[in-house]
Design a protein around this nucleic acid. Structure first.
Length: 401
DNA sequence: ATGTCC
């Protein structure tokens, strides 16, 4: 059952695609706070994977007129997904996928800390930086020296940690896909952290004629120098994140060419953000649209909705639903905090839930176990009016940081 | 999410 539920009462309404999926009361309070801001354009849209998040609710779409909320975008600026189809099928994969997983881990640094960075940047990263990314960051750093750019080159093409992953998947016709999830790494994090803190300092000096419900919703206003600087920096981090995914995909494909029979890339390749802000036109007005854990689903747009480590993932095509600001969910959505998942589930539970996947099965990934996430089928059913399913993928290898 | 902690 899809379609939105209308929640009224704030300055702006909330339209929530949450039929048949739980919505935490903590997340609801957060959404009401966002909807009370005077610069919301039309309404706030809520995706079925909604859950409480730092700054703003994960799974929300926030249109702002003449203002931008850096904490709504968050620190994982440009985080998103990339997927490519290959000409390989399940029959081309070896019985044991362990060696393939190890080969990918050799080609792509994973995890946080020094081991998660390249010792030496690969050629694809160097040429990507030379094509303009490095120079653009220098211009930003010249005005904002508190942001450090020294991780730039050694992290372009690296995975990171948390819920970031690389997967080898099979679609409904047993065709092999590569899918990965990552963002703008340390540099994007520094940019986000810096501007969030600047917005907070400015908030303390503002004289508002209205009630600010949450200091995490501190904003820049169009016309302020910081507004323009944030737009430039967040745009840079989003481009860096997309480039990070492309360089990483190149590296994964190199690993696959070493471990598997020769193959070609299929027609379908998708690279989409699900944590970002950009200008878009909705209901006749050009506004700033923040998708926090949401994917653009304009008519014909391809997107990626991954399930958890053991669940299905989906390549989707947007229907251009205006009330959702042409958006869809970015995944299944957590049902519990990482801490709660670690309390609730044992390593045996996790091993049983991921029996069909070549992946890490140690206590360090219990917070990412499938049971800590919503049922992806229910999440897809709740957004049937936002996207069509083009491909259904099941993972056979999952690499995590 | 993150050179994750002042």
């Amino acid at each position: 059952m899809s379609g939105f539920e209308l929640i009224e009462g704030g300055a702006s309404p909330i339209k929530a695609w949450t039929r048949g999926v739980p919505i935490e009361h903590q997340a609801m309070d957060q959404l009401r706070n966002v909807a009370s801001l005077p610069f919301i354009h039309s309404h706030v849209a809520v995706m079925p994977d909604v859950h409480f998040g730092r700054g703003a609710t994960v799974g929300s779409v926030i249109p702002t007129r003449g203002a931008i909320i850096p904490a709504a975008v968050g620190v994982d600026i440009g985080c998103g997904m990339m997927a490519v189809q290959t000409s390989l099928t399940a029959n081309d994969l070896p019985d044991s996928l362990f060696a393939l997983r190890r080969e990918i881990e050799r080609k792509v640094p994973v995890g946080n800390g020094p081991g998660g960075d390249f010792k030496e940047s690969p050629a694809s990263a160097v040429s990507t930086l030379k094509a303009g990314l490095a120079e653009r960051l220098e211009r930003i750093l010249a005005r904002h020296p508190k942001i450090r750019g020294d991780k730039l080159a050694k992290q372009l093409g690296t995975l990171g940690g948390g819920n970031h992953f690389i997967e080898i998947c099979l679609d409904e016709a047993d065709r092999v896909w590569v899918m990965l999830h990552s963002g703008s790494r340390g540099t994007g994090n520094l940019i986000g952290t810096y501007f969030i803190s600047e917005a907070r300092e400015m908030l303390m000096k503002r004289e508002l004629g209205w009630h600010m419900p949450d200091r995490d919703l501190a904003f820049f206003l169009s016309g302020e120098p910081m507004f323009d600087d944030y737009v430039e920096a967040v745009g840079w981090a989003q481009d860096y994140a997309a480039a990070n995914r492309r360089v990483m995909m190149d590296r994964v494909l190199i690993a696959m060419r070493e471990a598997l029979p020769p193959f070609q890339l299929g027609r379908t390749a998708v690279n989409c953000h699900h944590n970002y802000v950009e200008q878009e036109t909705h209901f006749g007005e050009t506004v700033w649209l923040t998708r926090k854990g949401a994917v653009r689903a304009g008519e014909g747009d391809l997107g990626i909705i991954p399930g958890s480590m053991g669940a299905k993932s989906f390549i989707v095509r947007g229907k251009g639903n205006a009330d959702s600001f042409c958006s869809c969910s970015h995944g299944a959505g957590r049902t519990m905090s990482r801490a709660e998942a670690k309390r609730r589930f044992t390593l045996d539970d996790h091993v049983a839930a991921t029996a069909h996947v070549e992946c890490r099965k140690d206590s360090g990934v219990i917070d990412e176990t499938p049971m800590a996430y919503k049922d992806i089928e229910a999440v897809m059913a709740a957004q049937a009016d936002l996207v069509d399913i083009v491909h259904t993928l099941r993972q056979v290898v999952c690499v995590k940081g």
